[in-house]
Design a protein around this nucleic acid. Structure first.
Length: 844
RNA sequence: GGGCGUUUAGCUCAGUUGGUUAGAGCAUCUGCCUUACAAGCAGAGGGUCUGCGGUUCGAGUCCGUAAACGCCCACCA
């Protein structure tokens, strides 16, 4: 046994440990023949560094995996990363531009080579960060969304869905990102409140002096207007239905149509219809057979249909048009408003609704299957906390077809080939004279298959058979619509089962003021910096145990620091144990009272911790362990053990309880627990593969536990009284009776203070069966008496309340018997205490 | 418009089948260098659990209602 260093030094403890674990294959699955327990990591994007949110997310998973592994499960944690289409492409383009290369001047093949080298670089960074965090990932199973196997499953899913009629190609109005120059799904559009205006424009009625007041937030689209609509029931405008208005500036004639889309209560009740630039108008246009005119191009600039505005950016054009309308007398007014505008999730530019030919997944049948699944208690995905199930179900109810094609180079190429008008969808090219679709699939299309594609699907591999469906998925609530929902319907459709039994949802990490961590606010925290300062163990324990399931976490460095203190405490307690267990005999049958006290509490701790680990309530695990270790083990037991260090039983108990503590902490603080464990066992055996403590009721000693607890309560009463009355070193005590006072004397360090008998004023200190007289040399002051009186008063109130409660027939009849008994005992204790206080009063 | 969450000590948060003296960390106050740890030890103070109403012998916990803050979804010419 090597002695530990005097101080806990997280750097030297963590240094090199991960590499040893990895080399020794401790992370490998398939070693245990226990029941499989599987988690697939939410694959981080290969676009940058891991942030605190990743650290949180992966710590939770690692804690689960390590716990289950110690419990004898065949634990598999699948690592991997996501190619992150738009995000990565944007980063690669940016880097190319910075080195003076126009990314679009490269061929697709050349560009892709750059992207892969980017991927290698960032994947390497991420793996280093995983190592720093101590994640026990099985690297034998590592996957990347663009690797060969996963690409094959992506194609298989596409092809199958196509043949089932659940994927189709069609011309629809979609969300277009003019900066990334690609289509987006509805989920990738973020609505933000921004300042804008209602522009009231005069649309003159043909051959008349009259006009219609049309309000719009997007005047630039008027160049493409196809009609003006009023509600058929709106009396104000009945007479105009069927007439013609002249589009200002443009001079084009467009009809006034009747459609319920026009809401009489909104604006002026007259709405312009721009079929090609608004989703609602698009629908109206279809109904009324209006031919759309596109005026904004894919790059967000006004196109050849926009007169002298051609070439202007859409927002520059807005200003220009408003100016011209004003000059020509068509502008009736401008009304400033705050309105919601859709922005691209990735590039943050306002999205442009455009009409385009894209690939879609037909959602209704797939979503209905999930809704059906969730009605089956035995087959459903169980959310933790359960309220998040509603988020998924709601999405499944309202979802519309998913636009899956992206006009990018980085991703899975759509397995569709064209020859003239012919379309072929299949796993491979049908021949050289066919041209493959240029587009790639939405990143989430491949992510949706992650739980099973990583395990070898569509092949029915050994891994797939053994580890699928997975046990648990851990992610933030913000990812539910993008990922959890899609994994669920794809998993269900293709594997006929839920992809994971449980879905553990955590919140977002915020700063101390509750703001989201973001680059623009500059309030982000790099987990690697925290690890440098306090170590991965402190960060992990803090992250895993600080909040209840599903709630946000306000990051507080002070708490990481206090977790470091906690580890330092464990470190020092371990040093104490190791200093005092020389010559230990491992077999021991007889224990003294305080040994039995801690053994009993230790067993109860195992029971509670196991219960909460199984329920994934880590907050509770954390507080139980913290309290047990710091208060029971360190503050109380170690102090008592100092009286019996020569006894083998105490050595055995110190070692047994410490090892149990290390094991229970290990899922959260893998490094330091391993370090101490190996030192104390003087072997290279790893704590990772040791067995988790299990509850043993034969080691519960109720009588002794109660007795020592009473003694400790008595000791506390004594100390409180001594401090409150400023009793210094000169004092004397006289015992009222003689039971167990040698133990109490040691705890209170009373050597030399105990007298047989003494006359004069004294305080009585008592708790339960223990009682003594405490004499102080200095006079008892008025202040002391006041304190005593105040205590008597509050105690009397409490006694009255309890008496009243116990005399309530309803309470005695309806409350559980044990509670009534407990109340009676409490009353008894209070009455005894009152007696003591009253006798103190008499002494004054 | 539909839904969800939060509101508990100065601050950040626990409190999961309702049980009567509501907990922790940090901060504050007092006394201690007690040989594992002063990043520590021994004590103390601090809360009418957002308001109102209800169910109950008993409510931080369940029900109803109001408010503040936050989030999600949908719509917004």
């Amino acid at each position: 046994m090597e002695m530990l260093e005097k101080k806990y030094d997280h750097k030297s403890v963590e240094e090199g440990r991960y590499e040893l674990w990895k080399e020794n294959h401790y992370f490998d699955s398939g070693v245990s023949n226990g029941e499989p327990y599987t988690i697939v990591i939410p694959p981080p994007n290969v676009t940058g560094k891991l942030h605190l949110g990743h650290a949180w997310d992966t710590t939770i998973q690692d804690a689960c995996i390590r716990y289950k592994r110690m419990k004898g499960f065949d634990a598999l944690w699948v690592p991997g990363m996501d190619h992150a289409g738009i995000a990565t492409q944007a980063k690669v383009d940016k880097r190319l531009k910075e080195s003076g290369i126009n990314p679009r001047s490269l061929s697709r093949e050349e560009w892709t080579r750059h992207a892969w080298s980017w991927k290698e670089e960032y994947a390497c960074n991420i793996k280093n960060q995983w190592a720093k965090l101590g994640l026990s990932l099985d690297y034998n199973k590592e996957r990347f969304t663009l690797d060969e196997g996963l690409s094959k499953s992506v194609r298989k899913v596409f092809v199958d869905l196509y043949h089932e009629g659940l994927i189709y190609r069609g011309t629809r109005m979609i969300n277009w990102d003019p900066l990334a120059m690609t289509a987006l799904s509805n989920e990738e559009v973020i609505y933000k409140d921004i300042e804008g205006a209602f522009y009231h424009i005069k649309y003159p009625i043909k051959d008349s002096d009259e006009f219609l007041d049309v309000a719009t937030t997007r005047p630039e689209t008027m160049l493409g207007d196809n009609a003006v609509a009023v509600n058929p029931n709106d009396e104000r405008y009945q007479k105009y239905i069927g007439s013609t208005v002249i589009l200002p500036i443009v001079g084009r004639e467009i009809p006034v149509i009747a459609d319920t889309h026009a809401d009489p209560s909104k604006g002026t009740g007259v709405v312009k219809i721009t079929v090609n630039h608004d989703p609602n108008d698009y629908e109206v246009g279809k109904k009324h057979q209006l031919e759309g005119i596109t005026v904004i191009g894919l790059d967000g600039k006004m196109n050849e249909n926009s007169l002298h505005f051609q070439g202007m950016d859409r927002f520059v054009c807005r200003e220009a048009i408003v100016q011209e309308l004003k000059e020509k007398g068509y502008l009736l007014g401008v009304e400033k408003i705050i309105h919601n505008v859709g922005h691209s999730e990735r590039t943050d530019v306002p999205i442009e609704p455009i009409v385009s030919k894209q690939w879609f997944v037909k959602m209704r049948p797939l979503a209905d299957d999930v809704l059906q699944l969730q009605k089956d208690k035995n087959q459903k995905v169980h959310f933790l906390p359960s309220r998040y199930e509603k988020i998924m179900n709601h999405w499944m109810e309202i979802t519309y077809d998913w636009c899956i094609s992206r006009q990018l180079w980085w991703g899975h190429r759509i397995p569709a080939w064209y020859k003239g008008e012919e379309v072929y969808v299949g796993m491979d090219s049908p021949g050289d004279d066919w041209i493959q679709d240029e587009d790639v699939l939405d990143t989430w299309f491949s992510s949706a298959l992650w739980p099973f594609s990583t395990l070898g699907w569509p092949q029915v591999t050994e891994d797939f058979k053994r580890y699928y469906p997975t046990s648990m998925l851990v992610t933030g609530y913000d990812i539910i619509p993008f990922w959890v929902n899609r994994m669920t319907f794809q998993g269900l459709h293709f594997t006929k089962t839920r992809p994971f039994e449980y879905c553990y949802i955590h919140g977002l990490i915020r700063d101390k003021e509750g703001r989201k961590m973001s680059k623009s606010l500059g309030n982000g925290v790099d987990p690697m910096d925290v690890i440098e300062e306090y170590g991965a163990d402190a960060l992990r324990f803090y992250l895993a145990t600080s909040t209840a399931q599903g709630t946000d976490l306000r990051y507080d460095p002070e708490k990481v620091r206090s977790t470091w203190n906690f580890i330092n405490k464990i470190w020092n307690a371990s040093r104490f144990v190791m200093m005092n267990i020389n010559g230990i005999e491992e077999k021991e049958k007889s224990y003294n009272d305080h040994d039995k006290w801690i053994l009993t509490r230790y067993q109860n701790t195992i029971k509670d911790v196991t219960k909460y680990m199984d329920k994934y309530e880590f907050q509770n695990v954390g507080s139980i362990l913290y309290k047990f270790i710091w208060e029971d083990f360190c503050d109380q037991y170690i102090e008592m053990a100092k009286f019996s260090l020569k006894e083998n039983s105490t050595k055995v108990v110190l070692k047994e309880v410490l090892i149990g503590i290390l094991k229970m902490l290990h899922p959260f603080m893998p490094f330091v627990t391993e370090e101490i464990f190996q030192n104390i066992n003087a072997s290279s055996e790893t704590i990772m593969l040791s067995s988790y403590p299990s509850y043993d009721k034969t080691k519960i000693y109720k009588t002794e536990e109660t007795k020592i607890s009473d003694i400790l309560a008595f000791v506390k009463t004594f100390r409180t009284l001594k401090q409150e009355h400023h009793i210094g070193k000169e004092f004397a005590v006289v015992y009222q009776n003689n039971e167990d006072y040698s133990f109490i004397s040691k705890l209170l360090k009373l050597d030399g203070h105990v007298l047989e008998e003494k006359e004069g004023d004294f305080y009585t200190v008592s708790y339960h069966n223990y009682s003594l007289k405490l004499f102080d040399e200095k006079e008892i002051t008025l202040e002391d008496q006041m304190k005593n009186e105040k205590e008597i008063e509050t105690l009397q109130v409490s006694i009255e309340k309890r008496k009243k409660l116990l005399s309530n027939d309803n309470f005695c009849k309806k409350a559980p018997e044990s509670l009534v008994l407990e109340e009676k005992q409490k009353l008894e204790l209070e009455l005894k205490k009152l007696e003591t206080l009253l006798s103190n009063r008499n002494a004054f």
